[in-house]
Design a protein around this nucleic acid. Structure first.
Lengths: 161, 161
DNA sequence: GTATGTGCAAAATTTTTGCATGTCT
DNA sequence: AGACATGCAAAAATTTTGCACATAC
């Protein structure tokens, strides 16, 4: 990969990402605003299932005049439009997730970290279970599987192997 | 079953239940108070995964001077001692559950109802999954599986068959 | 130009806290 | 008696709301 003096490769990638984000907002039927763009970008880039407050702190860098109320409203709007998902922790705190495919969460009670885990086999087992059993009188929106626990060594990461 | 004039059978059952509740509190190492007794009784009797506010309204009947702060503190104390479990809804609201065995929850987004479901096979699949896969650097406290959706007919009940 | 979105500040809601008083063991 | 629990009211934290102004389309 070659970069010219203006680092135009990097610039292009960044601009493309920005454009991608804007396309997603537009495709969902929402007007594209700077606030919405930086908020959706934040949820994607932060990589930490952020809370509203954390999104707010992050986006203030690129949009200092943004208000907390806007972040609350925008995050919920994005959930309604299916652009992001919300995840409630074991403690009942709301966090946001840019990943929309089926996956589970590991939640650490002492550090408040959320770690994704993916397992196709487990997904299938759960989906098959609900196909087989039939839930009556309910239109299923989503299924959440969460493992809650305490991190043993705070300096190491949590993972499933 | 025979009842005498004073309905002593019913009285005995009620007293026994009350005594059972008190034994649970005492066994957990907590002092037995009237407030704790009626709160734990409420979570068991309400049969609806109540919120703190709902517990508060319920226990005021038998304990009018109780304060909301006490219900907040007591519910968390019971969770710490393993007498009840807490369940966070998809919207991030805290609810309490007297059932401590492995089971899933169906959560209805429009009525805020929580319905239990039990399936031994699914429990085993999930438990085996985490045995097999090994979660590293985490002391697992509990695993929650929740199906979130909207009730179709508000007059009928939700169930898994 | 019109509909929609944003910022701001106030209000509503939910939860926690400190402390004097009360109660269990 | 001593440790612990409760009630109360204030404070803190979280989330929602109304409305004037700004912006996207």
């Amino acid at each position: 990969m070659f970069l010219n003096r203006n680092n135009s490769y990097l610039r292009t990638v960044v601009l493309n990402k920005y454009a991608d984000i804007q396309a997603k907002i537009s495709d969902s039927g929402l007007k594209v605003t700077h606030q919405r763009t930086v908020i959706l970008e934040a949820v994607h880039n932060m990589n930490s299932h952020p809370s509203v407050e954390q999104i707010y702190d992050y986006v203030k860098e690129s949009c200092p005049s943004i208000s907390l109320g806007t972040v609350y409203k925008t995050a919920e709007t994005f959930v309604e439009k299916g652009l992001i998902a919300k995840v409630s922790t074991h403690e009942g705190h709301m966090r946001y997730d840019p990943k929309l495919d089926n996956h589970g969460h590991i939640y650490c009670t002492n550090t408040a970290e959320i770690v994704d885990y993916y397992d196709e086999e487990l997904n299938e087992v759960i989906i098959n279970f609900f196909k087989k059993k039939k839930v009556s009188n309910l239109k299923i929106k989503n299924i959440t599987l969460q493992i809650n626990g305490d991190k043993i060594d705070p300096d190491k990461e949590i993972s499933i192997k």
